[in-house]
Design a protein around this nucleic acid. Structure first.
Lengths: 205, 205
DNA sequence: GTCTATAGCCAGATAGAC
DNA sequence: GTCTATCTGGCTATAGAC
C-alpha cells in the first residue's frame, strides 16, 4: 500500500470530521443532516460515504477528535514542567484548556453535551466517552497522590484514597462546567474557574 | 367552562407526557418517533395532536414534569424539619432524591442528559432547564448561608459569598452525578454520594 | 375528543458515470 | 475517489369520518 494514500485518506476523514463538528456546534447533532455535512465539507455525498459508512460513524469520529490533544495533555504537561501539582492547579489547567477550545467560534461544551446524550443510546460512542473521562480522571490521580504524599506527608494508602475522591470531585467540576457553559449563555466562566480553584485549593488531605 | 373538562385535559396531557418519558428513557429523545409515543400511550395520533401541537411541545412537557416535586422539595423539607443544615446534608439529600427517581425502571439521568442536549438547540427547553437548575441552586443558598452564620459565626457578607461558591460546587456535583450515572452503567452511586458528602462536609467557611 | 388513513416531506444512503 | 442524480423509507403532522 502506498503511504501517500493512507495519508490522503486521513486528511479527507479529518476534513469531513471537522465539517461535521462545525455543523454539530451550529445546529446540534440530530438537526444536522448529511446534506449539511456535505455542503459544509465542500465534498459530495459519494465522496463522504466513501470514507464513512454512516452518519453515526462520523459522529463517533467527531467524538474521538473533539478534545484530542487538549485537556489531558495540558494536565500532563503541567506535571512534567513543575514540581508537585495540587488539585487546584490541575483543575484550573483542565478547565482553562476546555474553555479555550472552540468549534467554529462555538464552545466545545455545546458539542460535548450532544455527544454525551448520543452516547446514552449509542454503545460505541458510550465506550468512547467513558474512555475519555476515565483517561482524564486517571491523569488527575497521579499528581494528586504525589502531592498528598510529598507536600502533606500522607501515607501511600491515605494519599491514594484521597486522590480517588478528589479526582472524582474534579471530574464533576469539569462536567459541571460543560453543562453550565452550554446551558447558560451568560455563564461566567472566569468566576466559575476562579471559585472552583479557590475551593479546591482550600482542601487538604 | 365546566371544571371536569379542565381536569380531564390535564390527565390526558399527563398520560401522554408519561408515555413520552418512558419512550425517551428507552430509546432517547430523537430515536423516539411519534408512533412510539402513540403506541406507548395507548392513544391515537389524532388524540395526541389534540393536546400537544408537536413533538417538541411534548418534549418540553416531559422536561417540565420529570423532576417536579423531587429534588428541590426534598431539600426544602429537610430545612423545615431540622435545624441548620450543612452543605453535606443538602447534597446527600438532593442526590439521593435524584437517585431514587425512575422512569420505567431507568434512572432519570438518561432522560435528563437528553433534555440538556436538546436544550442547547431549543430555546424553550433551554429556559426551562435554566430555571430548574437555578431554582435548585437558590434552594441550596439559603440553608448554606444560614449554616455559615449560625454554626460557624460568619458575617452575613462572608456567609453569602461562601454560600454562593458552595452552591455552585453542589450543582456541579449534582450534574456530575447525572452525567456519570448515565454514561457508566456500573457507576457506583452509593460511593459517589458518600464520597461527595464526606468531602463537602470536611469544608468549612 | 378520538379514531384511521394518509399526505407530504426530507432524511440517510446508494448507483453508476466519469 | 469523486461526482450527480435518485431511491427508499420513515418521519411529523393533518384530514375527515364518527
Amino acid at each position: 500500500m502506498p503511504k501517500v494514500t493512507e495519508q490522503y485518506k486521513d486528511n479527507r476523514r479529518a476534513q469531513i470530521t471537522a465539517a461535521a463538528a462545525r455543523c454539530f456546534a451550529a445546529k446540534g447533532v440530530h438537526r444536522t443532516s448529511m446534506s449539511d455535512i456535505i455542503a459544509e465539507s465542500g465534498l459530495s455525498a459519494g465522496a463522504i460515504y466513501n470514507h464513512f459508512k454512516s452518519k453515526q460513524e462520523i459522529t463517533v469520529s467527531v467524538g474521538a477528535t473533539l478534545i484530542k490533544g487538549r485537556v489531558l495533555e495540558a494536565v500532563q504537561a503541567l506535571e512534567s514542567e513543575a514540581g508537585p501539582v495540587g488539585p487546584g492547579q490541575l483543575l484550573g489547567r483542565a478547565l482553562r484548556e476546555l474553555d479555550s477550545g472552540r468549534v467554529d467560534d462555538q464552545p466545545l461544551s455545546a458539542v460535548i453535551i450532544q455527544l454525551w446524550a448520543e452516547a446514552v443510546v449509542d454503545e460505541t460512542l458510550m465506550v468512547l466517552m467513558q474512555q475519555q473521562i476515565r483517561t482524564i480522571r486517571t491523569g488527575f490521580v497521579g499528581p494528586i497522590k504525589r502531592w498528598a504524599r510529598e507536600v502533606h506527608g500522607q501515607t501511600p494508602a491515605r494519599a491514594a484514597r484521597w486522590a480517588d475522591e478528589v479526582s472524582q470531585l474534579l471530574i464533576s467540576m469539569a462536567t459541571g462546567y460543560v453543562i453550565q457553559r452550554a446551558l447558560f449563555p451568560d455563564f461566567d466562566r472566569r468566576k466559575y474557574i476562579a471559585d472552583a480553584q479557590r475551593i479546591i485549593t482550600s482542601m487538604t488531605p
